[in-house]
Amino acid sequence: MSNTPTRKARAQADRQAREQERQAQQRRQRLLLAAGGAVVLLLAVGIGVLSAGESAEREDVPTVEDVAGDPTIEGEGFPPAPEDPADDAVVGESAPVVRGADFDGTEVTIGDPGQPQVIAFMASWCPACDEELPQVVDWVEAGGLPEGVELVSVATNHDRARPNWPPQDWYAEAGFDRPILVDDEESSVAGAFGLTATPFWVAIDEDGQAVGRLTGMIGAEQMTALAEAAAG
């Protein structure tokens, strides 16, 4: 009798065996899961290596230093544009006069008295500018710009790491054929006109005084209103 396991002992042995089996199954499941995870990760990296192509070390693409201009700013700068254009205190104030150049080095001036201007500050990486620029081109082609008013764009907020770099290619692809003044690396021209976000519009009358500033996508109707305000 002493060598015969009791019913209680057999039941305990069965429980232990079941528990061991359960733990072994759990271990197998965890191993399987870890192996599956590792395979998925390796596969993802492998696909990434094989299909991503060359990395973003784009030596042939110009740097911000290559693209940025060296404009000179005369006169007092404007404060940041308020959210509501009706509250804009700079209306009637003399705008800063900026002398700079386009991407090819041709001289471009903004704010100079004697020439009413509509100035569109654009950043090539900005999706709102990307949507607005073709509308500007269409608006000009449709004759929206009044006689005697000059449309100038300021290429600003340069960032090589962002989409649509370099900006000269972006302007060319949109078919923009008006003068472009290239801002410097610090976006000083944008700062002088009180830019808070892009697109940013400034209208200047014949006396070199600001007649309005608008931030964001404005559409053809407001472009016309701004240009007519500049024309007086």
């Binding site: 999706p127 907020n157 976000a197 940013f200 996508m217």
Partner: peptide
């Protein structure tokens, strides 16, 4: 992009 308004630099 019009939903997000203008681009914060």
């Amino acid at each position: 992009p019009a939903l997000g308004g203008a681009c914060d630099p």
